[in-house]
Nucleic acid binder design. Structure first.
Lengths: 122, 122
DNA sequence: GCCGATACGCACCGATCGGTAGGCGAGGAC
DNA sequence: GTCCTCGCCTACCGATCGGTGCGTATCGGC
């Protein structure tokens, strides 16, 4: 999976970046963590719609990519907080933000174009 | 699939945007088309690594999202060109560009973080 | 009349992804 | 002692995705 870059063309770096958004909830969790460290349970209810298992996988991936870090407090009911790393923060503040801004500005155009295309496709 | 937004939380617009990058080759084709209109065959060799069928699907999706448009010339061997729409151009110039820039700047950090995490995970 | 180039379409396959359902371990509350 | 919470794990399942391989329509060249 890493060896792709050798036999592919120029865009493999782009691919490496877009892969960070490839899983449905990764960007959402990233965005949620921009507001500050959050506990696992908080993320679940704050985001809503993602299953318990998927949240685990998502957090694991984000950690594996060095975008977030995990901090466990030795408490009675276990308490675990997740926060953005510097790398994750830079991704969230840059490209992720740009995406959010773009949708804010062009979201209506996007929806209109999608519906127009649907109509054409009969 | 459109109804998600009602029962999900705030981030559904973000999701709508990240979905545009959800398929592996969509962003790459988008980036390739930034350089100007391209024929189907040109895209295939320029990108390299994506199958014929997947290119078809990718182009279809991008069209369905109103990001590119197709122009067919009635010629001997069929000639079809794909180009960015205004919407596609804005996406490519904004968020996609931001992603590419981010990778250029933080790609090494990303790789280092991934490898560090791999080592920890034994 | 046959071949080749181009832009598709279709059938099939294995891998992956998101989701459901249920279990586990550790400690506090009662 | 029993229940509860919280974080996490383990099947299992259906849908989707990317990929391979092969077929097809059209036209020009030879």
């Amino acid at each position: 999976m890493r060896g792709d870059c050798e036999d592919l063309v120029a865009d493999c770096r782009l691919r490496a970046a877009t892969d960070l958004f490839a899983h449905r909830w990764d960007p959402v969790v990233l965005a949620a963590l921009r507001l500050g460290p959050r506990r696992r349970g908080e993320l679940r209810v704050a985001i809503g719609g993602l299953s318990d298992k998927v949240l685990t996988e998502t957090l694991r991936r984000l950690r594996a990519n060095g975008l977030i870090e995990r901090q466990a407090y030795p408490q009675a009911p276990p308490r675990v907080e997740y926060r953005l790393t510097a790398l994750g923060e830079s991704l969230a503040a840059g490209p992720l933000r740009a995406l959010a801004d773009w949708v804010t500005e062009h979201g209506d155009d996007l929806l209109a174009a999608q519906e127009a295309a649907e109509r054409v496709a009969e």
